[in-house]
Design a binder for these strands. Sequence first.
DNA 1: CACTTTCTTCCCACATTTCCCCACCGGGCC
DNA 2: GGCCCGGTGGGGAAATGTGGGAAGAAAGTG
Lengths: 149, 149
Amino acid sequence: MTLLIGRYEYALDGKNRLGIPPRYRESLAQEKSKSVFITSGMEGCLYLFLPSQWNRLVENDCKAFALTDKEAERAFKRKFFSEAAEAELDSAGRILIPQYLKAHAGLKGQALVQGAGTRAEIWEPRRWQAYQKAKAEPAYRAVSKSIEL
Amino acid sequence: MTLLIGRYEYALDGKNRLGIPPRYRESLAQEKSKSVFITSGMEGCLYLFLPSQWNRLVENDCKAFALTDKEAERAFKRKFFSEAAEAELDSAGRILIPQYLKAHAGLKGQALVQGAGTRAEIWEPRRWQAYQKAKAEPAYRAVSKSIEL
DNA sequence: CACTTTCTTCCCACATTTCCCCACCGGGCC
DNA sequence: GGCCCGGTGGGGAAATGTGGGAAGAAAGTG
């Protein structure tokens, strides 16, 4: 089970193509696959899953997404799955970002591709910077107080 | 379980390569691995983990760090994983420092590599000196009152 | 239905970066 | 001295990031 880590910045070109880090491509190759799954993520980013990770999510689907409020569960699943796309890597290791996902993440010009353990995430750089300052840093500090990090 | 100790100073060259002390390389060899994990550390340094230690941390992360507040858990994991990098040693025993980590630690020219028990740390020499004077020394003295050392 | 236009996909090209290997230099040790 | 090991720098080959064009498919139009 490979963990995705690291931070990379790539150009999102006029054809909405975005590079995937070579390190992630190796993991993909290990799974003998040439495509990843992307969908809209929380806090205004995009999620990117390797096939193995995606499959695990879908299998656990009924568990991980289970809410006591079944109507909310339906609503969540509808959005999550309808906005998901299988993206095949071209010969240069890039994927195509659908228009609605590009809009969801506010992407233009440059994009961060960064590991988040069981998935990778795609962020508009300024949005990440703001989120990092407002949320990630405080959360990190809070955890580091209780655990020796 | 090897403890990392000692203080070493190496040049960070124009290609962002930093030497790893031979003593640490031996520990690495014992683990039959050729790469270490580095990430941003507290107080403006970098953390360097041997694979065994990194794995232990990640396992703790997935269990002990599981927060009831899932939003905070996402925030923590995002920072933790996105800033981590696996660094492979070249034939001369050096690793590459990613740009964002170099910036985090304020590195340029020279760098201290020093043991910190379960991990090693990388410091910009002046920053370490300032930290040592302001924090490490006082903390050391304070502890000496409660521990027979 | 023929034809044009738009969009998409595939492939190639090029500049840059990265990686891998080798060479050098200095110091300690035999 | 001669040898070995460790720290440092550099050069050349390979891989990567990025843009664009041509071929093909889909959609629009007379």
